[in-house]
Design a protein around this nucleic acid. Structure first.
Lengths: 123, 123
DNA sequence: GTCGTTGCAAAGCGTTTGCAGCCTA
DNA sequence: TAGGCTGCAAACGCTTTGCAACGAC
């Protein structure tokens, strides 16, 4: 991450503009509007570097490939649409998971994923 | 799932005996103690069939390959120990996820994964 | 004997890596 | 001009599929 390149800019821009976490393929498609000859390997390499630099956060969802979003957002979780495969942010997190943690266990963090149909697909 | 075979029995037995969800490779290793020439493709095909028959449940954990457990247990989630990589069941679940679901979205199900240290590793 | 099931190998699919050439600093 | 970065293609690991042989019923 030493040099500034058109490719890296395009990849970052794609993620910054997105309203939801993106997968590498989605990043490629969007970034190619800026750099048509962009390769998928470059997307993977830059995503990896951006995650290492803590500028991106990995969104790990059960059963599907990892997606990425810009780091620094408030605590939130995701809604995974089974129809369009899109991933959307869920604002709040009401639950207290300490109370369901077994005795003796040390709870550090939690992931919640909601499944169903997004607003568009539910129509 | 029409015929009873040694392979299918061995695969089912491996999952039934396990105290935690298993991945396909783990199932293969255990089932080969019964059927040494068992192939990984057969494991995948049978797991798929058993899931379709609702005799197995898919345990989808973020970031790691799917694991499988015998179906029919009460609603529960999992605690994933970052130290020993073990997966433990979490009994209860205070579901209030409808209220955090965005307007227009149709919520069908949810997954919760807790991370931290299990009782043994937390000592 | 039928045809569901199996084992092997090949094919997919998403991700990573090797390498020669490119281009930023 | 050095060497980080890129695009291409090959390599990878995991999962699925094609196919001929096997074996449950």
């Amino acid at each position: 991450m030493e040099r500034k390149t058109r490719q890296r800019d395009a990849i970052w821009l794609a993620l910054e503009r997105a309203s939801r976490p993106l997968g590498p393929q989605e990043v490629l498609e969007r970034a190619r509007q800026e750099v048509p000859r962009l390769g998928i390997a470059t997307v993977y390499r830059n995503i990896k570097a951006l995650v290492a630099a803590a500028r991106l956060r990995v969104v790990e969802l059960p059963g599907v490939p990892d997606r990425y979003e810009v780091a620094g957002k408030d605590h939130h979780h995701h809604f995974h649409c089974r129809s369009c495969d899109g991933v959307f942010e869920v604002e709040t997190c009401s639950d207290d998971f300490d109370q369901v943690t077994p005795a003796g266990f040390y709870l550090e963090r939690h992931e919640v994923t909601l499944y169903g149909l997004c607003a568009s697909c539910a129509l």
